[in-house]
Nucleic acid binder design. Structure first.
Lengths: 221, 221, 221, 221
DNA sequence: TTATAAACGAGACGGTACGTCGAGTCTTAAC
DNA sequence: GTTAAGACTCGACGTACCGTCTCGTTTATAA
């Protein structure tokens, strides 16, 4: 996991020298579980801190000692779900992409994810710290999937190797970013904005488009 | 415009025989202007109905007589901005796409748009009526840009004409949907989730990918 | 009846010279009936002008054209009930008093009367015009009962005749006022404040006290 | 004092084991003071809970945590004033009664008392819990004055002693109730309904009537 | 017969207060 | 120094009535 606590405990290493009753580790897990459960039942808009505390059988003070507010709490509760995504080797780049697209779509179909992700991103447009936290906790972490798929395809010979030198590395990073935005953006938009199902047929057509596009991209960049 | 009022007035057609003082048309405009101004200054999260009413010099009840709540009001206030998008003819499909991508990015860069769009979509995950309204007011309306660009490219010979018969029409519709999700999704994700600028360079690289992808798509579907 | 309308119509005599549609007499009756019905069902506190208008099948404007507000409307609706009180000749002062006490108690037992009377009096503590109107419409009108009973008792020889001259008249007026306050006050207090029933036994005991008191009063004043 | 709080705290005895932050005692006093001040300035009709909260420098929720509504709050604020009434020994029953009548009249002349008392009684006609509360907080408490005056007069020999046995006790209680209704009723009616001053002259005449009446009553009951 | 003028129904309007809810803080006693 | 409990301040919520207004319509007299 990542970064839950915010209170005075955070800074001072847990190594030594502190006194008093230690924070309950079980409480952390109970709170995050309760948060996800509340998201499922109520959605972002109706979720309240008091309700989460009650579900977790914890006092509200305990919540606020560890998270700055609803945004941060929900982000942590949801971010961990994204770490379950992985890129199983299905033998070809096309199948790998289709697989991860469907995995991602399945994740976005979960009520806690779909309601929380957009809401937290919306809040982040007026909260820089939150935006940073989202990028650390979700965006950058999941780019690993693109990087991994690319490397695997290069090993298979489906994609040309990166160009050498700092120039080549920068180009590779730009490609990763672009591909990540295209994949994540298209799936999110299809699922949440257009409100159409991301099924195997759509995934196949999208992957076809993307692979052809990659070909065009590589020849130039 | 589209669909502001919600109250009992909506149903009964305004055709004849209605009694009572008519609703003020000026109030509608003042309210939507005030809503956009409040979005700019406060963002979705801090915007309140009372504040909007005060800015519009209107009673809170007048707001609630016309819109069911914050979601519906903000949606109407923002949806009209999307109608300003257009597809100027720049001579080639590539330039047309780059142009609309940059226009769209500019729209998403406006504070009222960026804070409102994601928030309303987030709310729509737990509100079916709202989801429908978003699709009518934004999603379906803007597909016209894709349709128009496609037709223009076909006229220019940059894209093959649609296949004949109902089969061909369905394939064309699927293509439009897919392309729309890819373009809108990628731009939104780049701008709001990744938080990176959508500048001319990015637009060019994205368009290159998309055009190559379209080629791959057309040969098969 | 007394004084319902307040609007511009009030001043100019109805005799001549006005044009336009005349006020509906039926509406007046319907409104006052509706007011009493609403008092019974809802009590003073929950009664609303809109509700009265709806019950009377009349527009709110029609109410406000005739009465200045809730206080005035309710006062008029209730005052007329007090005019039903009368002093039947039962042959002796004691029986006459007991009769009127029980009549008055029965009137106060009606839900519309009990809830309205106290409330309007309460409002009149901060509204001089209302206080005047109450005195005209209720208090002074009902003193006739005391005057009448006194005269009848004097005719029977149960009470000595008034003293002569302005002196005697003033003393008589003072007596009437005092007796009225004692009777009305005791019955109202018993019924509404103490919340005990005003039954025949109580009326008999009260009348005994009052009659003995009157004897003491007459010998001196 | 008596009975201010209504919330969950009321039930569970304050004996032991309760947790959480205790209610502020200072807030209670500030609220009741503010209520009386608002009654003086605004009268019952214009008094609002929000205004009382603001005057007491307390949140509106704190009011509602302790009192169910305006009726209960105002009753508590005013009831305490009635406890200031007392029956100084002036040497004779007549003087004692005149004294307490004038004291009571002075209390009713205070703006907070006059506007609140009638209004709360009016509300109590459609609210049984409120009626009970009024009787406990005001009516029954002030009967002590009648009881005390009666005992004192009996000690002085101005009134015969109570009859013996349960019979005599019941008769005494009936007398107390009757006398209380007559005194309180007459004074309230004179002051608030008739709107005439309760001055020494009126008090003397009323007391004369009452004392003579008591004589008649005692010989029979 | 036609104007004129007021009453009328309907319902939108600007306000004010309501009573509730949630956020986030603070104060206790217990651990 | 954390914990549970719950009171606290603050601010927004959405609703209910208020009393006024603006319509179109109806119903009388007066010209």
């Amino acid at each position: 996991m990542q970064c839950s606590p915010t209170g005075p405990r955070k800074g001072r290493a847990r190594l030594t020298g502190r006194t008093g009753r230690p924070r309950s580790a079980a409480a952390d897990a109970a709170i995050l579980d309760a948060t996800r459960a509340a998201l499922v039942e109520l959605g972002w808009g109706k979720l309240t801190m008091g309700d989460v505390a009650a579900r977790a059988k914890v006092a509200k003070t305990t919540l606020y000692r560890r998270w700055a507010g609803k945004n941060e709490l929900v982000l942590d509760a949801v971010a961990v779900l994204f770490d379950e995504l992985e890129l199983p080797d299905r033998g070809s780049l096309k199948d790998d992409i289709e697989g991860v697209v469907l995995q991602f779509a399945a994740l976005l179909a979960r009520p806690e994810t779909k309601t929380a992700l957009m809401a937290v991103v919306a809040e982040s447009t007026t909260d820089d710290a939150l935006r940073t936290r989202i990028r650390e906790a979700v965006v950058e972490r999941q780019k690993r999937l693109v990087v991994q798929g690319r490397q695997r395809a290069q090993r298979r010979g489906e994609l040309p190797p990166d160009g050498g030198g700092p120039e080549g590395a920068a180009a590779a990073a730009r490609s990763v970013d672009l591909i990540f935005d295209v994949i994540a953006g298209a799936v999110v938009h299809r699922a949440l904005v257009s409100g159409e199902p991301v099924d195997a047929a759509w995934a196949a057509r999208f992957t076809t488009l993307l692979l052809a596009g990659l070909g065009g991209l590589e020849t130039r960049d």
